[in-house]
Design a protein around this nucleic acid. Sequence first.
RNA 1: GGCGGCAUAGCCAAGUGGUAAGGCAGAGCUCUGCAAAAGCUCCAUUCCCCAGUUCGAAUCUGGGUGCCGCCUCCA
Length: 504
Amino acid sequence: MLRVHNDLTRRLEPFAPANPPEVTMYACGVTVYDACHLGHARAYVAWDIVRRYLEHVGYEVRHVQNFTDIDDKIILRAAERGEEPAELTRRWEAAYFADMDRLGILRATDYPRATEYVAAMLRFIEGLMAKGHAYAVPDGSVYFDVASFPDYGRLSGRSAEDLGQRTRLDEPDPNKRGPADFALWKAAKPGEPSWTSPWGEGRPGWHLECSAMAAELLGKTLDLHVGGIDLLFPHHENEVAQSEALHDAPFVTCWLHNGFVNIDAEKMSKSLGNFRTVRELLEVHDPMAVRYFLLQTHYRQDLSFTEEALEGATRALVRLRRSLAAREAALAPSTPLVEALGAKVARAFAEAMDEDFNTPRALAALWDARAEIAGLEDADAEAAGHAVAEVRRLAAVLGLDLAAGDAGGGDWPVVAAEAAARLRDVPDHGLAAADQPEAQLAHWLEARRAARIARDFARADAMRGHLTGAGFVLADRKDGSVEVTHAEAQAWAWVWAPEGVPLA
RNA sequence: GGCGGCAUAGCCAAGUGGUAAGGCAGAGCUCUGCAAAAGCUCCAUUCCCCAGUUCGAAUCUGGGUGCCGCCUCCA
């Protein structure tokens, strides 16, 4: 049975959607004005795992994630660049998808844009005003009246007094009746994009879009609402207030929040300037390795980013893949032991994931299975491939493709192609230069093979030394083929196979 | 000031009462012409500190210390 940590109750509780097998899940999306960094990747990988696991255990998830495509930062950035806000936001939406697709994040059911739901938001505000929960001020803005909603603060654990105390430190906004009141509708300043409303030209407040779009697309009460812990207050608190004030129904049954990515013990964020974009990370690292890295930490915990840890995750992924690949072809009729092994890993995996999506433990279950598969003997070893398939199937629930990236696949990374090209400049071995990196490397490997057959190991090792100097790592295999990797190309491998008789 | 979180081996990180998962790094070995890869073995008597509860605590309670986050945009 799946149990989840509900931030509304601050407890682990059974997952109980209102209308199973359907699950409604709303994820707070990004403001599309800049590149995604590892922190964003962390959040969306976490929710991708939640979605995948729910589907794995039989739920049908309606997953909605918004794009905030109108706000102060967008307006400012578009003005700086001299382009329309819509051009800017469409560009960053595309960049968002490019990054997240590479990380293997499943597409949501819907990606509503705030600017396309302004009419729904205006109806929302009018409803709140009719019920006395909102008020307009002279400049044309509309605020939510927090005092009219006694339950305010339940999600974030803040009392009215807490909020009052803070305001002594800040300059009070003369427009607001109460210190915690927040804008539902912001009056437009000259030159800003705006929509017509009963209160004049303006644009929706940030908190409102999630409430309005969630209600439009998923209904008044959501099974799951997810987002970063930084959104807990005030964003999610305000969403609850608006939605429940209007609908007189619980807004969200279960809230999930993910922890931060820390770098040097500090939150990774735009404003601190200590972020690593997904795009730049993927220039060097296998997307699956980045995903694996993120899954090593439970989603609610802060995650420490270090290059060392990311590289460690990459090596772990490569070893897990290779270890399994070594047994994948063993598909003789299965045996009781192999069947039991498959069932055991599936059980351990489910136990881990059922405990609030404990991906570190789920990964450990996969590693335990790897060791058992490697230790199989005789008839069981002949059938090991069936257990490998089971491990890969479970890994896929985490969005990890353990079959990919192994020998033979993938384009040549730039570093490897450049290294191969440099081999042409080594004046030795009487080899013809070749244009393609594959052909260039194949010349060397063929010559080295000839030397090895002639048992001229000094020459063969000298050739390997040159290749090693260029960054290539050779792995001789029993059949005479050579697996080639490159020290700077994470998780990349290329296999050269000789024509003719294999090495004796 | 208010609210909340975290402190586990060189690094990342599970573990909420029963005697420290997993990965990376490191060491040894097997295999190999030699390597690499793969495989096997080893690697925290101890969980920030001090009291307490308990037959028993990394886990519960109290008190410290340190770090981080939210309260303004933020995944």
